[in-house]
């Protein structure tokens, strides 16, 4: 780990003023052998940043801690029925938060299925959404891969069993956040503040970007922006949801596949609207729009759920070692739909 200076920001403005680059930009710069110079990056819970520092993938001159900013971890019910989650709220707090559990169970399930208790106690929702991909080529400094500014994806012709089955060219990462799968399905927005005090609200789904938008960044965070909050919309009556994660293990493990389903059911039981998101499937949480369309207006049942499972995988382009994800996702989509609709 390189040496760095420590900045304990006390306000968002201080943090924004002190930071000079996103972690992604700082990494690309370092991998390109640019002098580390005066780079300053933000740190929330610090789990991912510390990981990157230890691997020598990140070597900033300064780390700006958000932990000392009062109130940035607040979880507040908003007028109109939404929920505003401060970006520094820890995953364990969200997993157990009574409002999250009651109104957004897919999120609490997704968060509870993430990492280990120890990590959840430190990791924040903001940091979770902004963490860099877990691709083992990306995470080893030996591989100067596309995502670090290099010229080659090592996974596509390499060990790609844990990689993307959608949108996997030219870079085959999967988005690492399990929480994001649920949040995108829930229509969450993120709130981004800059040093000038300007705040922009972006739909999380749009905040994340695929490799063809930007190869070195998984999202649209600007260099001096601070992700301050994640906002969940109010949900209409009749909303049902579920999140399912399947890892090789139930103990601490990254998912092979995870699925979030949010269904808006009419009083007559038919599906008014569906959001269906596949995590660990693509470089961003993957909306299965075809399957969503299939569910709209119909009564949810075993056959329809099965059909939706198949539709959700339409267009998948599995790599040499990850075609097993197709039947796995089909199963999870079907089970998640049935779990959401029928409990």
């Amino acid at each position: 780990m390189n040496r760095f200076a420590w900045v304990n920001a006390r306000t968002i403005e201080e943090a924004s003023a002190a930071v000079s680059a996103t972690v992604a930009d700082a990494m690309t710069e370092l991998a390109g052998n640019a002098a580390a110079g005066d780079t300053a990056v933000l740190k929330a819970g610090g789990v991912d940043v510390l990981d990157l520092l230890k691997e020598g993938l990140l070597a900033p001159a300064r780390i700006v801690s958000l932990r000392g900013i009062p109130g940035l971890d607040a979880v507040v019910e908003e007028a109109g029925g939404g929920l505003r989650i401060g970006s520094m709220a820890t995953l364990s707090r969200l997993a157990d938060h009574p409002v999250v559990r009651r109104r957004y169970p897919a999120l609490s399930e997704a968060v509870r299925a993430s990492a280990s208790p120890q990590i959840r106690n430190v990791a924040t929702l903001g940091g979770n959404l902004l963490q860099r991909p877990r691709c083992w080529y990306f995470r080893a400094h030996e591989y100067h891969c596309l995502r670090k500014g290099g010229g080659h994806c090592f996974a596509i012709a390499g060990e790609n069993q844990y990689h993307a089955i959608f949108d996997n060219r030219p870079c085959a990462i999967v988005h690492p956040s399990t929480a994001a799968t649920a949040l995108v399905a829930l229509g969450a927005t993120v709130e981004l503040a800059d040093a000038q005090g300007a705040v922009r609200q972006v739909l999380l789904e749009d905040f994340f970007g695929p490799p063809d938008r930007d190869l070195q960044r998984e999202n649209d965070l600007k260099p001096r922006e601070v992700l301050t909050a994640i906002r969940l919309p109010a949900l209409p009556a009749g909303t049902h949801m579920a999140h399912l994660k399947q890892g090789e293990k139930d103990s601490f493990d990254w998912p092979l596949a995870d699925v979030a389903v949010v269904l808006e059911l009419s009083p007559d039981g038919s599906c008014r609207k569906a959001a269906l998101v596949l995590g660990t499937a693509a470089p961003v949480p993957h909306r299965a729009k075809q399957a969503e369309g299939l569910l709209a207006g119909k009564h949810i049942g075993e056959d329809l759920a099965r059909e939706a499972g198949r539709a959700a995988l339409e267009g998948a382009t599995p790599l040499a070692k990850n075609a097993y994800k197709l039947p796995l996702f089909e199963t999870l989509v079907r089970r998640a739909i049935l779990k959401a609709a029928l409990g």
Partner: peptide, 13 residues
């Protein structure tokens, strides 16, 4: 000027 003031954060905390 900013969208979310520090005061908002303190209150929401």
């Amino acid at each position: 000027e900013r969208g979310i003031s520090r005061r908002t954060f303190l209150r929401s905390a």
